Amino acid sequence: MARKKDKSIEFKEALHGKKLPILTLDDRWYQLIPEHEKTVAIKQLENNLNNLLKKQGKMINDIKDMKKLKKKLMSEIVANMEPDSSPAGRLKAKKLEKSHQFIEEINSKMQSADNTLLDMPYEIKRANEELMIESMKVCYAKLKHNQKDIKELDQWIRQTREALKVRIIQKQDKEIENSSLYSYMHDILGNTVLDILDDKE
């Protein structure tokens, strides 16, 4: 017995070079895969994609916040430049040193966030494609099921049409026969007897 071919490879090849919209941000995907038709795999892949998008958004905001903080610290460095040996000068020197440390930490964090952020589009693209492949499996199964139903319904319609034609002919034959009987009896018996027959209908 031949093994059922896994469609994942075919679907993956079909997606090669295609620019997909982010599925969880696209209304058409929700129409294609309504909530009640989502498999466990689709729900997991959907969550994974949404989490990656949230992570990307958070990292972008974090980098913006770090840039603002760095700008503020740079302003403090400029304000505390050239400290002298007075108590106020020593305080300025301390602030200056702290600001330099914070800036180094921020630079390190920003560098790390930038590196992670560079990989995010590829991770999102991969997660999106995985979700699309799983969605294509559901759609393919639905199409195959519908094709089977369409074939059965088409056969039923053909049979019903044939049976209906036979019934229509039978009805017409009965109407013709009744018309002939009525006409014949009218000619022989007249209206009075026919009125009695009509009352019994």
Rank of each mutant, 00 (worst) to 15 (best):
L189N: 01
D26F: 09
L197A: 12
K125F: 00
N48M: 05
M110I: 15
D62F: 05
M136Q: 06
E10L: 14
E130W: 00
K43Q: 11
T116V: 10
D6K: 11
D27I: 07
V78A: 09
Q31F: 05
A127S: 02
R126C: 02
V138G: 09
S8V: 09
L53T: 05
N146F: 13
W29M: 01
I60M: 08
R158L: 13
K70I: 04
E104V: 03
S183P: 00
M81G: 06
S135T: 08
H16V: 09
Y182M: 10
G89D: 00
T39Q: 02
L32G: 04
E152A: 13
S112K: 15
S183V: 00
K148Q: 15
A2K: 12
N178R: 07
L53I: 10
H36Q: 12
A163N: 12
Q56R: 14
E105D: 15
L131Q: 01
Q44A: 08
I77C: 01
F11I: 02
L52N: 01
I168F: 09
P34G: 02
I60N: 12
Q155K: 15
N107V: 07
K70A: 07
Y140Q: 08
K12Y: 07
I124Y: 00
T39C: 04
K70Y: 05
A113T: 08
P121R: 04
K171G: 08
N61L: 11
E105A: 12
Y184R: 13
V193I: 13
D173R: 15
E175Q: 11
K137F: 03
S86K: 04
H145R: 12
D173M: 10
L23P: 01
E134D: 08
K58Q: 13
E13V: 04
Q44L: 03
D114N: 13
E104N: 12
Q31D: 14
I63L: 14
N178K: 10
S108V: 04
L32Y: 08
L53F: 06
L131N: 02
E177W: 10
R3N: 10
D84L: 06
L181R: 10
Q172N: 12
D198T: 06
E175M: 11
Y122D: 15
K144C: 09
Q147A: 09
A127I: 02
S180V: 09
S179W: 07
K72N: 11
K72F: 06
L49I: 04
I42T: 05
L45M: 07
M1G: 12
K151I: 09
S112C: 06
P83H: 03
D26E: 07
N50W: 02
C139S: 11
K55L: 15
P87R: 04
D65E: 15
R90A: 10
K137S: 11
M185N: 02
K70H: 07
A88M: 08
R158Q: 15
D84Y: 03
I103P: 02
A113M: 05
D119P: 07
E76I: 06
L69T: 14
L23W: 02
M74R: 06
D26V: 05
V78M: 11
K43Y: 05
D6L: 13
A93V: 02
D65I: 08
V40H: 08
Q101I: 07
E130M: 11
T160S: 15
Y122L: 15
K7T: 10
K98R: 12
Y140V: 04
P21D: 03
E130P: 00
S180E: 10
M185P: 01
G17V: 05
L45S: 03
